[in-house]
Nucleic acid binder design. Sequence first.
DNA 1: GAGTGGTCTAGACCACGTT
DNA 2: ACGTGGTCTAGACCACTCA
Lengths: 253, 253
Amino acid sequence: MGTTQLESVPEPKYWHLRTVLSEALDSEFSVGEILPNERDLAARFGVARATLRQALEQLELEGRLQRRRGVGTTVAPPRMGVAVGTDQDAWPGAAGDAWQPADCTLVVPPAAVATALETGAEEPVHVVRRSRVSHGQPVAAELLYIPAASVPELTAIDAPSGASRARAVLRELQHLELEGQDRAVELGSARADDAKELDRLPGAPVLVVTTRFLADGRTAALSVATYRADTCRLTFGDTGGVEIHHGPERQAS
Amino acid sequence: MGTTQLESVPEPKYWHLRTVLSEALDSEFSVGEILPNERDLAARFGVARATLRQALEQLELEGRLQRRRGVGTTVAPPRMGVAVGTDQDAWPGAAGDAWQPADCTLVVPPAAVATALETGAEEPVHVVRRSRVSHGQPVAAELLYIPAASVPELTAIDAPSGASRARAVLRELQHLELEGQDRAVELGSARADDAKELDRLPGAPVLVVTTRFLADGRTAALSVATYRADTCRLTFGDTGGVEIHHGPERQAS
DNA sequence: GAGTGGTCTAGACCACGTT
DNA sequence: ACGTGGTCTAGACCACTCA
């Protein structure tokens, strides 16, 4: 496997390398297998380590590789499907949802959140932190913003803070009737705290799912969930979801 | 604005730089404004150009900046909301959808597509290329795979190829009754052809939306649409969608 | 302590858009 | 022709995991 020469169209080296490695992953490696280290790989392909790393970053972004500092680079399993569009008629915290409440605080929200909630900028909101685990590994971290007005009967006494308080807030939320929800998905990079929870480095690519829950003609809750973009495929709709992967045979065109 | 020093927790330089630049974008720049070039910026912050570029890449990934070779780096407008979850009951190509057919070919599909279509590996499918433009710029490129069995009455004569052939295939598709659809979203990197159509470089981050259209108890069509991740926020659900941005203290919009 | 990936440097040259 | 961002190099050191 030396470097091949077909430079009539000067394709970047790292891009060509990405293709070569991608094909090698299909044909010569199996899931979980450890690749040679970056210095060896770079030497083998006759490129600088930085260039080799550019190719690896691409493949990691595409969910083909998993790299861990101090450990090595391994072949990643196919992305797991994570259902996002279900529970169309249920509040967060309803029986059997995929989330596990971790904490709850009462704060004055950031300006952007206050705007989306259509509430006063000074009005305090409950912030529930939740995490989602799938197939034994963390896939998402969520911040749930709930205006105090949405849970008027919440007693601050019996659950002052922590997970029990979070559960109490979610329980109160069920009393409202959910009228609908808006959802948006965009690319982002993990903040330091989310990154830690997702077992990634800060700045790791994440899919940010923003959901607005409507009740009483207003926004009763706002969820900002960040999913690991490298390991997750977000599925919407009724059934399990579509499966399209890379494979040994590509680009018949 | 020199480099500040708080290294008790050795935060990476590029990450700190990203934060500093992000705040500067909020307070000192307006949308469309041109930033100083990379060499000047690197010198101003006392870092190597590669480090400065790492920070810029983060900000571009987050949709805050737009960089174009030969031109410069500009402050990006907020991401545009692009509706993806509507048309729940309509086929692709139905009246007034957002897509513009560009081409159509008849090929034996890649293995991965054949699997998702639940059709024989050798069975030919129509591949319709479409593009989507929003607010005057291209936002998505799509490949629509339609098994020949889904459009049995298509006459190959009157529209041999090109956009007119694509329209003919889509027209035939409307005769089937749509029973449902599955949708999934994941992160990917643009292939060379898609990148060109999206006015980006190969490898640019894209949101890949895979939709399976069901009719007659089988998969009657499969859409693989790649959206520019830097400029698009995919919206689902009934109304316009949620808006959450970064922002200093105001939402002037 | 050995080995891994992550960060950073100071250069060089290239491809592209504008002038 | 010039200035821009994009690619690439050959090093160095750091942070982390694990035996």
